[in-house]
Design a protein around this nucleic acid. Structure first.
Lengths: 400, 400
DNA sequence: CGAATTTCGTTAGAGACCTTGCCAAATGGC
DNA sequence: GCCATTTGGCAAGGTCTCTAACGAAATTCG
């Protein structure tokens, strides 16, 4: 770390330019040399040599001709999608979802497998089996995967390799457990919180496109938030940013309660699916069993269910008020089981309530359109971005 | 925005390298050519031409010789502090503070002037007078100021040029009012929220040095928070990030209260200096007049004052719990009148309470060491960073 | 159907920058 | 006073990019 952002010899310039060309090819799709010259500001000969290098490395290929209104037709170039493969994994509550995506970000194969035993050894065996199956379908081996991305609940402690705050994954809190993901693909891999990935997915392919600062708030069996700042995922000092489960919001006066009682009035316990059911029961509907049921009843005008939704609105609005006061976001996308199924009932009232709670201009609030695929989508987005850098780095290394 | 981070011709390389050399000179202090070569990774001849260019532009000068254990003594170079001047202004409640700092960041002259009439016209006249006085002391004119930085309460709306949420600055909420700062120095200027500047000051010269993610929480006559993420100030979508005044924290059950009552239970009303006095009065000390008085009484064991401090601890802990759940910071620095004067009584109990409120590892909490100079310090830090870029840009422009 | 026109791609020459390698100058120790 | 050591400067060489010009391909118009 002697030098911060320094640069030196003239050959780094070539690498920078090749990087820029590669990026523009992704951004613009099939594109001609003159268009690349205009987009990058480079001259035609420079574009030509960059394309030659990228082509020799197998990252770019000719893809046809474009006829203009007059004059010679231009050769079109595109990134070779098979130049890299991303294995994206969503370790969900009921299902393990795995997809294989190419460098263009298109998902080529996919499998949803019911969760079996979730201890590290069994889960890793399941993932390895699924990875084998998917790669075979495409005609590559597990070793040809450029990068694997694993979306898990909880917080990945990079120091110890343990997974914290993930009670549904027994055994993964052991030091070094997360490092065993390396056995699945024998290639570089990333481990990210599932809600964080969903936020990236929403930022790349969903409603968050083009929004500088936004957050994805997931409410389901649990609660969580992924924060995107300046288009980049914000993880916090220890990876715990957005752990809104612990927001001090709940019934009763927090100041009167026993100050030593831990976890009282946590957002998660009152606002998650179970919290909604509990609220309905407390309000007189003893037989309430699921959040979906409560939302359906509220839609048909049941007064107790309506009141339960009102309570949920209040909780969510308080949480988002805290988020707004701290982060001043442009957009909040609501996801998770409760967020998606009850979004139509929640969004309007939450926004109204929010306007009263904070005198600031509240963020736009929308319901996720990616639904249960948000995590996978985000894993692909993260993986493709990193994989593009990887294949370029590899090209530069071999050209030494 | 055709190109994102692209680069092209070979001459940008020279600029990048000169920039790197200039930065290293600041980082390392008086430094020899071989040391610069090592630090930047550039060769000796390149360092020499870069220094020649920087010297010709008046940004760098020779400053002496360093004799090593053996061999020829090396010429030392340093940045010329007079190559740029920063005018930093803190528009505080009782005082207007103005300093003139050189490019090295050392404050050369300073004046603290009691706040008079605070409407734009009068305040600008006062500032212009003070700027004239300070520049004259250094032997330069107001036009020689490289950059001016104004720290104000409230939020600067860059679209309209209005200052929002600053009730103590009457007339400044008019569109275009903030643009009139240009009359003070006739040079480029920046307008930042005062608490945000304090956060930058703490990050550059205070306890936040080297901390990636931290926040400066100010509690005084009002409340506010400045957020530094990845060493950079985070402003939010509309510049309102860190407006913790509007955190929904307060007495009573927010769910039982009238949902339409705006601003009820705001953090600022309960936790600011007035809030502490009100709490003491409510607890039975009818004659309480100032927060300082309450803290002093608590230190001498007065039970009512102790209970009032306990209430304040609870409020602050709840606010910081919300901040921690959202941002997962490494460090929170406490500032402002209440934060500095009552910090010794607050920090320990707040940290204890915080541990119970969030199951996460709470951030370190410390009392600001910069005290009332935090805003000015931050304004200087912001200004010096920007001014260094400015003088370099100017050099590059003249060398075209 | 052929020529003019327009656009594309390549080649050649030149400029800018950085680096390696060598030599002179200066300093402290033996 | 000489020598090892480090600094500073100079020249030559290499890499990259740009401009300018030329040949190639495709369309339009006569």
């Amino acid at each position: 770390m002697a030098t911060h952002q320094t640069a030196s010899t003239t050959s780094v310039l070539r690498v920078m330019n090749e990087r820029a060309v590669f990026g523009e090819i992704f951004r613009l799709g099939p594109v001609s040399r003159p268009e690349l010259a205009q987009a990058t500001g480079l001259s035609k000969p420079t574009i030509s040599v960059a394309l030659a290098n990228l082509g020799r490395a197998g990252l770019v290929r000719e893809v046809g001709l474009r006829a203009g209104p007059a004059g010679r037709s231009a050769l079109l170039y595109e990134a070779r999608p098979e130049a890299g493969w991303v294995l994206a994994v969503d370790i969900g509550r009921a299902f393990v979802r795995v997809v294989l995506a190419n460098l263009a970000g298109t998902i080529v194969t996919r499998v949803d497998d019911p969760s079996g035993s979730r201890n590290p050894t069994d889960l890793l065996a399941q993932l390895t089996r699924l990875a084998d199956r998917l790669t075979a379908e495409v005609g590559i081996g597990r070793a040809d995967v450029t990068l694997a991305v694993f979306g898990t609940p909880g917080i990945h402690d990079k120091e110890t390799g343990a997974l914290h705050l993930a009670p549904n994954l027994p055994g993964w809190e052991q030091p070094g457990a997360v490092d065993r993901f390396s056995t699945v693909s024998s290639s570089p891999y990333l481990v990210e919180n599932d809600v964080d990935l969903a936020a990236v997915g929403e930022a790349t392919y969903g409603l968050g496109r083009g929004v500088a600062h936004f957050a994805y708030v997931s409410i389901g069996t649990g609660t969580g938030m992924g924060i995107v700042i300046d288009g980049k995922l914000y993880r916090g000092a220890r990876g715990c940013a957005g752990e809104i489960s612990y927001l001090p919001i709940g019934e009763g006066d927090p100041l009167q309660a026993d100050p030593t009682a831990a976890r009282r009035g946590m957002f998660e316990t009152v606002a998650s699916a179970d919290g909604i059911v509990a609220a309905a029961q407390r309000l007189g509907w003893a037989g309430a069993t699921s959040a979906k049921e409560v939302f359906d009843a509220a839609r048909s005008g049941d007064p107790i269910a309506e009141r339960a939704v009102e309570v949920e609105v209040n909780h969510v609005a308080h949480a988002l008020a805290a988020v707004t006061a701290v982060l001043d976001l442009e957009l909040i996308v609501l996801g998770g089981g409760v967020g998606v199924q009850g979004g139509d009932l929640l969004i309007g009232p939450v926004q109204d309530r929010l306007r009263h709670l904070v005198a600031l201009q509240p963020p736009r609030i929308e319901v996720s359109t990616l639904a249960s695929d948000a995590v996978l989508t985000g894993a692909v987005a993260v993986g493709v971005t990193a994989a593009r850098d990887l294949v370029l780095d590899r090209m530069v290394a071999t050209n030494t």
